[in-house]
Simulated scan of single mutants.
Amino acid sequence: MATTIPTKYNAPALDKGLDIIEYLSAEGIPLTQAEIANGINKTPSEIYRMLVCLEERGYVIRGSNAGKYRLSLKMYSLSHRHTPFDELKRVAHFPMQSLSETTRQSCHLSIMNNDQLLIISQTRSPSAVSLSIEEGTHFPISMTTSGRVLLSMFSEDVRKDILSRDPHFKKWSKQEQDELYQCVAQAKADGYRHSNSALTSGVTDLAIPIGLDDSDLRAVLAVSLFTSSLQNELNIESILKAMKHTQQEINKLIGG
């Protein structure tokens, strides 16, 4: 049965249409008008006009024999006009801009691409001097703070599979490999990670995961700054606080 979610503003017709689409998606089989109505706690007459509208717009298809309704591929087509990462870049732009203005530091967004970390978006700092990491740059996933946070978002089996193909990880000693796994586990437990950069001396990286539990969309928001600019632990905490707020804003915009 459909669950009613309280909303600030009422839009009964839209609610009914979305209830129908979501119910058909959840059931996964063709259903009659009566079965759909029963599933969303409505009467058949209440949803008749909405079903006609959805059919005319191509969102549902009615079978010619039993007259049962099923979802068309229109929703799939609409969702695939832009990749999830295109949409992520778009919605993350203003929250990332706000983060840079708040922290006075550049920030960047990265994803996994061919077992490497790929920078897909960057917002520059308003300060005269700051670090810049160009979009389109790839980094070894095992060698970066963002990469370790990204690994924490996968299951243990998937992590091992990814790292089995990492050229740097394969050269490490058993102790070094175990230390990486510990770092990843700690990042998962903490929900973030900050550490000195293994690739650039004098740089501290702070990274936090972006994405929803029920989605395959995984990304990492990071701030890289000169270590000398960190006066004390409170400064790190203030940056992390701003990053967590940005994390919540982006996750909300992608459906959280």
Rank of each mutant, 00 (worst) to 15 (best):
E87R: 13
K89G: 11
K89S: 09
R90E: 07
V91E: 07
A92N: 10
F94S: 15
P95F: 03
M96E: 03
S98W: 04
L99N: 05
S100P: 05
T102S: 14
T102H: 09
R104F: 04
Q105I: 01
Q105N: 13
S106E: 03
C107L: 08
C107E: 06
H108M: 05
L109A: 12
S110I: 00
I111M: 02
I111S: 11
D115G: 06
L117S: 09
L117N: 07
I120V: 14
I120H: 09
S121T: 03
Q122C: 11
Q122W: 03
Q122D: 07
T123E: 14
R124W: 02
R124Y: 03
S125P: 11
S125C: 10
P126R: 09
A128N: 10
A128G: 05
V129S: 09
S130R: 02
S132P: 02
S132W: 08
E134G: 14
E135N: 08
G136H: 02
T137M: 02
H138V: 05
H138T: 12
I141R: 09
I141C: 10
I141F: 07
T144P: 05
T145G: 09
G147K: 01
G147T: 04
G147E: 00
R148L: 00
R148N: 08
R148E: 02
V149E: 01
V149H: 08
V149F: 02
V149A: 14
L150M: 08
L150A: 04
L151I: 08
L151Q: 02
S152M: 06
F154A: 06
S155P: 03
D157L: 06
V158R: 15
V158D: 15
D161E: 15
D161S: 15
D161I: 08
R165S: 15
D166P: 13
P167C: 12
P167W: 05
F169Q: 07
F169P: 11
K171Q: 14
K171P: 08
W172Y: 10
S173N: 03
S173Q: 04
K174Q: 12
K174M: 07
Q175K: 09
Q175A: 13
L180P: 04
L180A: 01
Q182A: 13
Q182R: 09
V184D: 12
A185K: 13
Q186D: 12
Q186Y: 04
A187C: 07
K188N: 13
A189H: 11
D190V: 00
D190K: 13
D190G: 05
D190E: 10
R193K: 12
R193P: 00
R193H: 05
H194K: 10
H194L: 04
S195H: 02
N196T: 05
N196L: 07
S197I: 01
A198Q: 11
L199W: 01
T200V: 11
T200Y: 04
S201Y: 03
S201D: 08
T204N: 14
T204C: 14
D205K: 10
A207R: 02
I208A: 08
P209I: 04
G211R: 06
L212K: 15
L212I: 14
D213F: 13
D213P: 10
D213L: 13
R218Q: 14
A219E: 03
A219P: 09
